[in-house]
Design a binder for these strands. Structure first.
Length: 207
DNA sequence: TCATTAACACGGG
DNA sequence: CCCGTGTTAATGA
């Protein structure tokens, strides 16, 4: 299992890592498990030690949309604001694969900003990273056709997994991109005909 | 025109 | 048999 040390050795000073290890609670989530749901009050900030988390926005009318992924070493920037203001979560976080996170109780977040420069930088940088990812997601939705969006989705999945093979069903892609499975199936089929991918049951190969 | 919905057949596990 | 997949026909934006 990945420890806080292994995930953050390069980014935090030893004292901070020691303090994180002391106060945080390490939790594991299986693929598909909900880590944080919409409307929930957030009392701890998650640091991703291992695995991948999907951050999803949901409309009232059961519309779902993937915002971005969190990987090893990332944190959910939205949760920081929620923790400090003890507000409800606006998003849903789901474990995409088996995932390990360190939950830091919110009373430490503020004081560490003053005490540890690396922590301060990490939080600020995390904000800017998430914002950039959000922007490219918005660009994708606003300016790209569904076939491009699906291609980008597949590429992102592949790079996160470090594999050209993606284990996923058409329905899940449809949910993440907020469209119907018929469209996903049709576009995947045409991508296959173009020689860009190879389709198997529960499996997509990028070429 | 293109997405969605519903419905159906096919096939693998 | 159940689920994922591929396709079609009808409907809507």
């Amino acid at each position: 299992m990945t420890t806080v040390q292994q995930a953050f050795l390069g980014s935090f000073e030893k004292e901070l890592i020691a303090e994180i290890e002391e106060v945080s609670v390490v939790k594991q989530f299986k693929a598909g498990e909900i880590i944080m749901d919409i409307g929930q009050y957030i009392k701890a900030m998650p640091l991703v030690l291992d695995g991948v988390i999907k951050i999803i926005r949901e409309d009232k009318k059961e519309g779902e949309l993937l915002l971005y992924f969190l990987e090893k070493g990332d944190t959910c920037a939205l949760s920081i604001a929620c923790c400090v203001g003890s507000k409800k979560s606006e998003i849903r976080a789901i474990a995409d694969v088996h995932t390990t996170v360190a939950m830091i109780p919110n009373q430490y977040l503020d004081s560490w900003m003053g005490t540890y420069k690396t922590w301060r930088n990490y939080v600020l940088e995390s904000y800017s990273n998430r914002l950039n990812e959000l922007l490219s997601t918005v660009d994708n939705i606003a300016f790209s056709q569904m076939d491009v969006r699906i291609m980008n989705y597949l590429k992102e999945k592949a790079s996160i997994r470090n594999s050209q093979k993606i284990e996923i069903t058409h329905q899940v892609i449809a949910n993440d991109l907020n469209t119907s499975r018929v469209v996903v199936s049709r576009i995947l089929k045409s991508l296959e005909n173009q020689g860009k991918i190879l389709l198997q049951r529960n499996n997509i190969n990028l070429l």
